[in-house]
Design a protein around this nucleic acid. Structure first.
Lengths: 218, 218
DNA sequence: AATTATTTTTAGATTAATCTAAAAATTTTG
DNA sequence: CAAAATTTTTAGATTAATCTAAAAATAATT
Protein backbone atom coordinates (compact mmCIF):
# COMPACT_ATOMS: atom_id res chain seq x y z
CA UNK A 1 0.00 0.00 0.00
CA UNK A 2 1.61 3.23 -1.14
CA UNK A 3 1.42 6.54 0.70
CA UNK A 4 0.10 9.68 -0.97
CA UNK A 5 3.65 10.97 -1.16
CA UNK A 6 4.95 7.85 -2.85
CA UNK A 7 2.09 7.99 -5.34
CA UNK A 8 2.76 11.65 -6.06
CA UNK A 9 6.40 10.93 -6.78
CA UNK A 10 5.52 8.16 -9.22
CA UNK A 11 3.09 10.45 -10.99
CA UNK A 12 5.68 13.23 -11.20
CA UNK A 13 8.29 10.86 -12.63
CA UNK A 14 5.78 9.62 -15.18
CA UNK A 15 4.90 13.10 -16.38
CA UNK A 16 8.49 14.32 -16.40
CA UNK A 17 9.81 11.31 -18.29
CA UNK A 18 7.41 11.80 -21.19
CA UNK A 19 9.48 14.53 -22.82
CA UNK A 20 12.88 12.87 -22.43
CA UNK A 21 14.83 9.65 -22.56
CA UNK A 22 17.25 9.99 -19.62
CA UNK A 23 16.43 9.52 -15.97
CA UNK A 24 14.24 12.17 -14.38
CA UNK A 25 16.34 14.54 -12.29
CA UNK A 26 15.93 14.99 -8.58
CA UNK A 27 15.50 18.73 -8.91
CA UNK A 28 12.81 18.52 -11.57
CA UNK A 29 10.80 16.21 -9.34
CA UNK A 30 11.30 18.53 -6.38
CA UNK A 31 10.12 21.47 -8.44
CA UNK A 32 7.13 19.54 -9.79
CA UNK A 33 6.02 18.51 -6.31
CA UNK A 34 6.93 21.80 -4.63
CA UNK A 35 9.26 20.03 -2.23
CA UNK A 36 13.04 20.04 -1.75
CA UNK A 37 15.74 17.90 -3.38
CA UNK A 38 16.77 15.99 -0.23
CA UNK A 39 13.18 14.87 0.30
CA UNK A 40 13.11 13.57 -3.24
CA UNK A 41 16.41 11.71 -2.86
CA UNK A 42 15.02 9.88 0.17
CA UNK A 43 11.86 8.98 -1.69
CA UNK A 44 13.76 7.75 -4.76
CA UNK A 45 15.67 5.34 -2.56
CA UNK A 46 12.45 4.06 -1.10
CA UNK A 47 10.71 3.66 -4.46
CA UNK A 48 13.79 1.89 -5.79
CA UNK A 49 13.68 -0.55 -2.87
CA UNK A 50 10.06 -1.25 -3.79
CA UNK A 51 11.04 -1.87 -7.42
CA UNK A 52 8.82 0.89 -8.70
CA UNK A 53 11.69 2.85 -10.21
CA UNK A 54 15.29 2.24 -11.19
CA UNK A 55 17.58 4.73 -9.57
CA UNK A 56 21.32 5.14 -9.34
CA UNK A 57 22.90 8.01 -7.47
CA UNK A 58 23.25 11.17 -9.55
CA UNK A 59 21.56 9.53 -12.52
CA UNK A 60 17.93 10.29 -11.99
CA UNK A 61 14.91 7.99 -11.84
CA UNK A 62 13.05 5.87 -14.35
CA UNK A 63 9.83 3.94 -13.81
CA UNK A 64 9.90 0.16 -13.90
CA UNK A 65 6.99 -1.61 -15.59
CA UNK A 66 5.40 -1.93 -12.18
CA UNK A 67 5.95 1.74 -11.37
CA UNK A 68 4.59 2.79 -14.74
CA UNK A 69 1.46 0.75 -14.24
CA UNK A 70 1.00 2.20 -10.78
CA UNK A 71 1.47 5.74 -12.08
CA UNK A 72 -1.04 5.16 -14.88
CA UNK A 73 -3.55 3.84 -12.41
CA UNK A 74 -3.29 7.02 -10.37
CA UNK A 75 -3.61 9.10 -13.53
CA UNK A 76 -6.65 7.05 -14.53
CA UNK A 77 -8.28 7.83 -11.21
CA UNK A 78 -7.36 11.50 -11.41
CA UNK A 79 -8.85 11.91 -14.87
CA UNK A 80 -12.01 9.93 -14.18
CA UNK A 81 -12.68 12.06 -11.11
CA UNK A 82 -12.14 15.17 -13.23
CA UNK A 83 -14.78 13.95 -15.66
CA UNK A 84 -17.13 13.31 -12.76
CA UNK A 85 -16.60 16.79 -11.35
CA UNK A 86 -17.28 18.50 -14.68
CA UNK A 87 -20.02 16.27 -16.06
CA UNK A 88 -21.97 15.56 -12.90
CA UNK A 89 -21.06 18.19 -10.34
CA UNK A 90 -20.92 21.18 -12.67
CA UNK A 91 -17.35 22.15 -11.91
CA UNK A 92 -15.55 24.28 -14.43
CA UNK A 93 -12.53 22.65 -16.08
CA UNK A 94 -10.34 25.20 -14.31
CA UNK A 95 -11.52 24.07 -10.86
CA UNK A 96 -11.10 20.31 -10.97
CA UNK A 97 -7.40 19.74 -10.59
CA UNK A 98 -7.03 20.45 -6.88
CA UNK A 99 -9.93 18.22 -5.85
CA UNK A 100 -8.87 15.43 -8.22
CA UNK A 101 -5.42 15.55 -6.63
CA UNK A 102 -7.11 14.44 -3.42
CA UNK A 103 -9.58 12.00 -4.92
CA UNK A 104 -6.94 10.15 -6.95
CA UNK A 105 -5.52 8.66 -3.74
CA UNK A 106 -8.72 6.93 -2.63
CA UNK A 107 -8.08 3.21 -2.56
CA UNK A 108 -10.88 1.06 -3.95
CA UNK A 109 -10.82 -0.84 -7.21
CA UNK A 110 -14.56 -1.23 -7.19
CA UNK A 111 -15.04 2.51 -6.69
CA UNK A 112 -13.06 3.48 -9.75
CA UNK A 113 -14.45 0.78 -12.00
CA UNK A 114 -18.02 1.66 -11.05
CA UNK A 115 -17.25 5.34 -11.51
CA UNK A 116 -15.93 4.54 -14.98
CA UNK A 117 -19.16 2.71 -15.82
CA UNK A 118 -21.30 5.47 -14.32
CA UNK A 119 -19.54 8.05 -16.48
CA UNK A 120 -20.03 5.93 -19.62
CA UNK A 121 -16.39 4.84 -20.04
CA UNK A 122 -15.03 8.24 -21.07
CA UNK A 123 -11.77 8.26 -23.07
CA UNK A 124 -10.73 11.85 -22.40
CA UNK A 125 -10.67 14.10 -19.36
CA UNK A 126 -12.04 17.67 -19.41
CA UNK A 127 -8.69 19.00 -20.67
CA UNK A 128 -8.55 16.54 -23.55
CA UNK A 129 -6.04 14.20 -21.93
CA UNK A 130 -6.58 10.47 -22.52
CA UNK A 131 -7.83 8.26 -19.69
CA UNK A 132 -5.80 5.05 -19.27
CA UNK A 133 -7.82 1.83 -19.21
CA UNK A 134 -7.77 -0.44 -16.11
CA UNK A 135 -4.73 -2.29 -17.50
CA UNK A 136 -2.78 0.96 -17.83
CA UNK A 137 -3.07 1.21 -21.58
CA UNK A 138 -3.29 4.76 -22.85
CA UNK A 139 -4.53 5.76 -26.29
CA UNK A 140 -2.50 8.56 -27.80
CA UNK A 141 -3.85 10.68 -30.60
CA UNK A 142 -1.70 12.74 -32.91
CA UNK A 143 -1.97 16.41 -32.18
CA UNK A 144 0.04 19.50 -32.96
CA UNK A 145 0.58 22.76 -31.17
CA UNK A 146 -1.24 25.76 -32.58
CA UNK A 147 2.15 27.47 -32.61
CA UNK A 148 3.38 24.94 -35.17
CA UNK A 149 0.69 25.65 -37.74
CA UNK A 150 1.30 27.88 -40.76
CA UNK A 151 -0.90 30.58 -42.22
CA UNK A 152 -4.07 29.14 -43.71
CA UNK A 153 -3.90 25.87 -41.80
CA UNK A 154 -6.66 24.87 -39.42
CA UNK A 155 -7.51 22.31 -36.78
CA UNK A 156 -9.82 21.31 -33.97
CA UNK A 157 -8.90 22.29 -30.43
CA UNK A 158 -8.35 18.94 -28.66
CA UNK A 159 -6.22 19.70 -25.59
CA UNK A 160 -4.01 22.00 -23.56
CA UNK A 161 -0.36 21.57 -22.71
CA UNK A 162 -0.48 23.84 -19.67
CA UNK A 163 -3.67 23.08 -17.73
CA UNK A 164 -3.13 25.72 -15.07
CA UNK A 165 -6.26 27.34 -13.80
CA UNK A 166 -5.09 30.73 -15.09
CA UNK A 167 -4.67 29.51 -18.68
CA UNK A 168 -8.00 27.66 -18.65
CA UNK A 169 -9.81 30.78 -17.45
CA UNK A 170 -8.03 32.74 -20.16
CA UNK A 171 -9.49 30.34 -22.74
CA UNK A 172 -12.95 30.57 -21.16
CA UNK A 173 -12.88 34.34 -21.43
CA UNK A 174 -12.18 34.03 -25.16
CA UNK A 175 -14.82 31.32 -25.61
CA UNK A 176 -12.19 28.84 -26.75
CA UNK A 177 -13.30 25.35 -25.74
CA UNK A 178 -12.50 21.77 -26.74
CA UNK A 179 -13.92 21.10 -30.19
CA UNK A 180 -13.54 24.68 -31.42
CA UNK A 181 -12.33 24.95 -35.01
CA UNK A 182 -9.33 27.26 -35.22
CA UNK A 183 -7.84 28.63 -38.45
CA UNK A 184 -4.72 30.74 -38.75
CA UNK A 185 -5.51 33.87 -40.76
CA UNK A 186 -2.22 35.66 -40.34
CA UNK A 187 1.01 35.47 -38.37
CA UNK A 188 2.40 38.77 -37.14
CA UNK A 189 6.05 39.16 -38.07
CA UNK A 190 6.95 41.42 -35.20
CA UNK A 191 5.97 39.23 -32.21
CA UNK A 192 4.76 35.98 -33.83
CA UNK A 193 1.26 36.59 -32.50
CA UNK A 194 -1.47 34.80 -34.40
CA UNK A 195 -4.64 36.19 -35.92
CA UNK A 196 -7.07 33.31 -35.91
CA UNK A 197 -10.72 32.62 -36.54
CA UNK A 198 -12.63 30.65 -33.98
CA UNK A 199 -16.24 29.94 -34.88
CA UNK A 200 -17.55 33.26 -36.24
CA UNK A 201 -15.11 35.49 -34.43
CA UNK A 202 -11.55 36.52 -35.11
CA UNK A 203 -9.00 37.18 -32.41
CA UNK A 204 -5.32 37.53 -31.66
CA UNK A 205 -3.41 34.91 -29.69
CA UNK A 206 0.11 35.37 -28.37
CA UNK A 207 2.87 32.90 -29.21
CA UNK A 208 3.00 31.91 -25.57
CA UNK A 209 -0.67 30.93 -25.56
CA UNK A 210 -0.45 29.24 -28.96
CA UNK A 211 2.29 27.10 -27.51
CA UNK A 212 -0.19 25.62 -25.01
CA UNK A 213 -3.00 24.76 -27.40
CA UNK A 214 -3.15 21.35 -29.04
CA UNK A 215 -5.04 20.88 -32.29
CA UNK A 216 -6.02 17.92 -34.38
CA UNK A 217 -5.02 19.00 -37.85
CA UNK A 218 -7.61 18.96 -40.60
CA UNK B 1 -6.65 22.27 8.50
CA UNK B 2 -7.17 19.05 10.43
CA UNK B 3 -5.39 15.77 9.75
CA UNK B 4 -7.30 12.58 9.05
CA UNK B 5 -6.39 11.37 12.51
CA UNK B 6 -7.70 14.49 14.19
CA UNK B 7 -10.94 14.23 12.22
CA UNK B 8 -11.32 10.59 13.13
CA UNK B 9 -10.95 11.38 16.81
CA UNK B 10 -13.60 14.09 16.64
CA UNK B 11 -15.96 11.71 14.89
CA UNK B 12 -15.33 8.98 17.48
CA UNK B 13 -15.97 11.40 20.35
CA UNK B 14 -19.18 12.53 18.67
CA UNK B 15 -20.50 9.00 18.26
CA UNK B 16 -19.42 7.88 21.73
CA UNK B 17 -20.90 10.89 23.51
CA UNK B 18 -24.37 10.29 22.07
CA UNK B 19 -25.26 7.59 24.60
CA UNK B 20 -23.89 9.33 27.70
CA UNK B 21 -23.50 12.61 29.55
CA UNK B 22 -19.97 12.35 30.98
CA UNK B 23 -16.76 12.86 29.11
CA UNK B 24 -15.83 10.19 26.59
CA UNK B 25 -13.14 7.91 28.01
CA UNK B 26 -9.71 7.51 26.51
CA UNK B 27 -10.09 3.76 26.29
CA UNK B 28 -13.42 3.87 24.50
CA UNK B 29 -11.94 6.16 21.86
CA UNK B 30 -8.92 3.89 21.49
CA UNK B 31 -11.19 0.90 21.04
CA UNK B 32 -13.40 2.74 18.57
CA UNK B 33 -10.43 3.79 16.43
CA UNK B 34 -8.48 0.55 16.86
CA UNK B 35 -5.56 2.42 18.34
CA UNK B 36 -3.94 2.52 21.80
CA UNK B 37 -4.73 4.69 24.82
CA UNK B 38 -1.46 6.67 24.81
CA UNK B 39 -2.05 7.72 21.22
CA UNK B 40 -5.49 8.95 22.20
CA UNK B 41 -4.19 10.90 25.19
CA UNK B 42 -1.76 12.74 22.92
CA UNK B 43 -4.49 13.55 20.46
CA UNK B 44 -6.87 14.76 23.17
CA UNK B 45 -4.27 17.27 24.29
CA UNK B 46 -3.86 18.49 20.76
CA UNK B 47 -7.61 18.79 20.10
CA UNK B 48 -8.00 20.61 23.40
CA UNK B 49 -5.30 23.10 22.38
CA UNK B 50 -7.28 23.71 19.20
CA UNK B 51 -10.48 24.29 21.20
CA UNK B 52 -12.29 21.44 19.50
CA UNK B 53 -12.82 19.52 22.76
CA UNK B 54 -12.70 20.19 26.46
CA UNK B 55 -10.41 17.78 28.21
CA UNK B 56 -9.07 17.47 31.73
CA UNK B 57 -6.75 14.65 32.72
CA UNK B 58 -8.56 11.47 33.73
CA UNK B 59 -11.94 13.04 32.96
CA UNK B 60 -12.48 12.19 29.34
CA UNK B 61 -13.28 14.42 26.39
CA UNK B 62 -16.30 16.46 25.32
CA UNK B 63 -16.79 18.32 22.06
CA UNK B 64 -16.94 22.10 22.08
CA UNK B 65 -19.47 23.78 19.78
CA UNK B 66 -16.70 24.12 17.24
CA UNK B 67 -15.68 20.48 17.59
CA UNK B 68 -19.27 19.33 17.31
CA UNK B 69 -19.78 21.32 14.15
CA UNK B 70 -16.59 19.91 12.68
CA UNK B 71 -17.59 16.35 13.58
CA UNK B 72 -21.02 16.83 12.01
CA UNK B 73 -19.45 18.13 8.86
CA UNK B 74 -17.34 15.00 8.55
CA UNK B 75 -20.41 12.84 9.22
CA UNK B 76 -22.32 14.82 6.59
CA UNK B 77 -19.61 14.06 4.05
CA UNK B 78 -19.44 10.40 5.05
CA UNK B 79 -23.18 9.88 4.66
CA UNK B 80 -23.50 11.81 1.40
CA UNK B 81 -20.73 9.71 -0.11
CA UNK B 82 -22.52 6.58 1.10
CA UNK B 83 -25.66 7.70 -0.72
CA UNK B 84 -23.60 8.33 -3.85
CA UNK B 85 -22.01 4.89 -3.70
CA UNK B 86 -25.34 3.11 -3.32
CA UNK B 87 -27.54 5.25 -5.58
CA UNK B 88 -25.10 5.96 -8.38
CA UNK B 89 -22.32 3.39 -8.23
CA UNK B 90 -24.44 0.35 -7.37
CA UNK B 91 -22.63 -0.49 -4.15
CA UNK B 92 -24.45 -2.64 -1.65
CA UNK B 93 -25.17 -0.94 1.70
CA UNK B 94 -22.76 -3.41 3.31
CA UNK B 95 -19.85 -2.25 1.13
CA UNK B 96 -19.93 1.52 1.49
CA UNK B 97 -18.49 2.18 4.91
CA UNK B 98 -14.80 1.55 4.17
CA UNK B 99 -14.74 3.72 1.07
CA UNK B 100 -16.76 6.50 2.72
CA UNK B 101 -14.20 6.48 5.54
CA UNK B 102 -11.66 7.61 2.98
CA UNK B 103 -13.89 9.97 1.01
CA UNK B 104 -15.09 11.84 4.10
CA UNK B 105 -11.65 13.42 4.47
CA UNK B 106 -11.58 15.10 1.05
CA UNK B 107 -11.41 18.84 1.56
CA UNK B 108 -13.63 20.89 -0.71
CA UNK B 109 -16.78 22.74 0.29
CA UNK B 110 -17.86 23.02 -3.32
CA UNK B 111 -17.43 19.29 -3.85
CA UNK B 112 -19.73 18.32 -1.03
CA UNK B 113 -22.36 20.94 -1.75
CA UNK B 114 -22.49 19.98 -5.41
CA UNK B 115 -22.62 16.31 -4.48
CA UNK B 116 -25.56 17.09 -2.20
CA UNK B 117 -27.37 18.83 -5.07
CA UNK B 118 -26.50 16.04 -7.50
CA UNK B 119 -28.00 13.47 -5.14
CA UNK B 120 -31.19 15.53 -4.70
CA UNK B 121 -30.53 16.69 -1.14
CA UNK B 122 -31.03 13.31 0.55
CA UNK B 123 -31.96 13.33 4.24
CA UNK B 124 -30.92 9.77 5.10
CA UNK B 125 -27.94 7.59 4.29
CA UNK B 126 -28.33 3.97 3.07
CA UNK B 127 -28.51 2.71 6.65
CA UNK B 128 -31.28 5.11 7.61
CA UNK B 129 -29.04 7.55 9.48
CA UNK B 130 -29.85 11.26 9.09
CA UNK B 131 -27.56 13.48 7.00
CA UNK B 132 -26.65 16.74 8.77
CA UNK B 133 -27.27 19.91 6.76
CA UNK B 134 -24.34 22.23 5.86
CA UNK B 135 -24.81 24.14 9.13
CA UNK B 136 -24.46 20.93 11.14
CA UNK B 137 -28.14 20.61 11.98
CA UNK B 138 -29.31 17.04 12.22
CA UNK B 139 -32.94 15.95 12.07
CA UNK B 140 -33.72 13.17 14.51
CA UNK B 141 -36.75 10.97 14.10
CA UNK B 142 -38.25 8.92 16.88
CA UNK B 143 -37.54 5.28 16.45
CA UNK B 144 -37.62 2.20 18.66
CA UNK B 145 -35.68 -1.01 18.71
CA UNK B 146 -37.48 -4.07 17.42
CA UNK B 147 -36.47 -5.70 20.70
CA UNK B 148 -38.62 -3.19 22.60
CA UNK B 149 -41.86 -4.01 20.81
CA UNK B 150 -44.51 -6.27 22.33
CA UNK B 151 -46.50 -9.05 20.70
CA UNK B 152 -48.87 -7.74 18.07
CA UNK B 153 -47.09 -4.42 17.64
CA UNK B 154 -45.64 -3.42 14.28
CA UNK B 155 -43.44 -0.84 12.63
CA UNK B 156 -41.46 0.16 9.58
CA UNK B 157 -37.78 -0.74 9.41
CA UNK B 158 -36.01 2.65 9.37
CA UNK B 159 -32.44 2.00 10.49
CA UNK B 160 -29.79 -0.21 12.03
CA UNK B 161 -27.89 0.33 15.26
CA UNK B 162 -24.98 -1.89 14.26
CA UNK B 163 -24.09 -1.16 10.64
CA UNK B 164 -21.32 -3.75 10.41
CA UNK B 165 -21.00 -5.41 7.07
CA UNK B 166 -21.79 -8.79 8.65
CA UNK B 167 -25.12 -7.63 10.08
CA UNK B 168 -26.14 -5.89 6.87
CA UNK B 169 -25.44 -9.02 4.83
CA UNK B 170 -27.46 -10.98 7.38
CA UNK B 171 -30.41 -8.66 6.71
CA UNK B 172 -29.93 -8.94 2.93
CA UNK B 173 -30.08 -12.72 3.14
CA UNK B 174 -33.43 -12.45 4.92
CA UNK B 175 -34.72 -9.80 2.48
CA UNK B 176 -35.08 -7.29 5.28
CA UNK B 177 -34.53 -3.82 3.87
CA UNK B 178 -35.32 -0.26 4.88
CA UNK B 179 -39.07 0.33 4.54
CA UNK B 180 -40.04 -3.27 5.33
CA UNK B 181 -43.11 -3.55 7.56
CA UNK B 182 -42.36 -5.80 10.51
CA UNK B 183 -44.97 -7.19 12.92
CA UNK B 184 -44.29 -9.23 16.02
CA UNK B 185 -46.35 -12.41 15.91
CA UNK B 186 -44.97 -14.12 18.97
CA UNK B 187 -42.14 -13.81 21.48
CA UNK B 188 -40.46 -17.06 22.50
CA UNK B 189 -40.28 -17.37 26.28
CA UNK B 190 -37.22 -19.57 26.31
CA UNK B 191 -34.70 -17.38 24.44
CA UNK B 192 -36.67 -14.18 23.73
CA UNK B 193 -36.41 -14.85 19.99
CA UNK B 194 -39.09 -13.14 17.91
CA UNK B 195 -41.45 -14.62 15.37
CA UNK B 196 -42.22 -11.81 12.98
CA UNK B 197 -43.91 -11.21 9.69
CA UNK B 198 -42.05 -9.25 7.04
CA UNK B 199 -44.01 -8.65 3.86
CA UNK B 200 -45.60 -11.99 3.06
CA UNK B 201 -43.12 -14.15 4.90
CA UNK B 202 -42.68 -15.11 8.53
CA UNK B 203 -39.34 -15.65 10.16
CA UNK B 204 -37.54 -15.91 13.46
CA UNK B 205 -35.16 -13.22 14.65
CA UNK B 206 -32.83 -13.56 17.62
CA UNK B 207 -32.87 -11.06 20.47
CA UNK B 208 -29.37 -9.99 19.50
CA UNK B 209 -30.48 -9.09 15.98
CA UNK B 210 -33.71 -7.48 17.16
CA UNK B 211 -31.57 -5.24 19.30
CA UNK B 212 -29.96 -3.78 16.18
CA UNK B 213 -33.09 -3.02 14.19
CA UNK B 214 -34.78 0.36 14.48
CA UNK B 215 -38.46 0.72 13.65
CA UNK B 216 -40.80 3.62 13.26
CA UNK B 217 -43.80 2.49 15.26
CA UNK B 218 -47.18 2.41 13.59
C1' DA C 1 -10.86 2.77 54.39
C1' DA C 2 -7.26 -0.04 52.74
C1' DT C 3 -6.11 -3.00 49.12
C1' DT C 4 -6.70 -4.43 44.52
C1' DA C 5 -7.93 -3.68 39.87
C1' DT C 6 -8.53 -0.68 36.17
C1' DT C 7 -7.77 3.31 33.59
C1' DT C 8 -5.06 6.95 32.15
C1' DT C 9 -0.98 9.33 31.63
C1' DT C 10 3.98 9.89 31.14
C1' DA C 11 8.39 8.57 29.36
C1' DG C 12 10.89 7.12 25.81
C1' DA C 13 11.32 4.85 21.01
C1' DT C 14 10.15 4.28 16.18
C1' DT C 15 8.72 5.36 11.38
C1' DA C 16 7.53 8.58 7.74
C1' DA C 17 7.90 12.87 5.71
C1' DT C 18 9.83 16.91 5.79
C1' DC C 19 13.52 20.61 6.21
C1' DT C 20 18.46 23.25 6.31
C1' DA C 21 23.30 23.17 5.91
C1' DA C 22 27.25 21.03 4.36
C1' DA C 23 29.71 17.69 1.59
C1' DA C 24 30.29 15.23 -2.67
C1' DA C 25 29.63 14.45 -7.47
C1' DT C 26 28.70 16.04 -11.96
C1' DT C 27 28.38 19.48 -15.49
C1' DT C 28 29.57 23.70 -17.59
C1' DT C 29 32.69 27.08 -18.98
C1' DG C 30 36.57 29.95 -19.80
C1' DC D 1 41.29 20.45 -18.85
C1' DA D 2 41.14 22.98 -14.62
C1' DA D 3 38.12 26.09 -12.13
C1' DA D 4 33.56 27.48 -11.29
C1' DA D 5 28.84 26.53 -11.14
C1' DT D 6 25.25 23.46 -10.49
C1' DT D 7 23.15 19.42 -8.92
C1' DT D 8 22.67 15.78 -5.85
C1' DT D 9 23.45 13.47 -1.76
C1' DT D 10 24.49 13.03 3.12
C1' DA D 11 24.11 14.40 7.82
C1' DG D 12 21.43 15.83 11.24
C1' DA D 13 16.94 18.02 13.08
C1' DT D 14 11.96 18.49 13.41
C1' DT D 15 6.97 17.31 13.50
C1' DA D 16 3.20 14.00 13.52
C1' DA D 17 1.47 9.67 14.54
C1' DT D 18 2.20 5.70 16.42
C1' DC D 19 3.77 2.09 19.88
C1' DT D 20 5.43 -0.42 24.60
C1' DA D 21 6.52 -0.25 29.34
C1' DA D 22 6.20 1.96 33.53
C1' DA D 23 4.22 5.31 36.67
C1' DA D 24 0.31 7.72 38.47
C1' DA D 25 -4.43 8.42 39.28
C1' DT D 26 -9.05 6.80 39.77
C1' DA D 27 -12.50 3.28 40.67
C1' DA D 28 -14.00 -1.02 42.67
C1' DT D 29 -14.07 -4.34 46.26
C1' DT D 30 -13.57 -6.67 50.23
Amino acid sequence: MLSHTEENHLKAIFHLSKDQNEGVSTNSIAQNLKTKAPSVTDMLKKLCDKNLITYKKYQGALLTDDGRKTALNIIRKHRLWEVFLVEKLEFNWSEVHEVAEQLEHIKSKKLINELDRFLGYPTKDPHGDPIPNPAGFIKHTTKVLLSDLKKGEKGTFVGVKDSSSAFLKFLDKRKISLGSLIEILHIEDFDDSLHVSIGNTNLTISMKSANNIYLKKQ
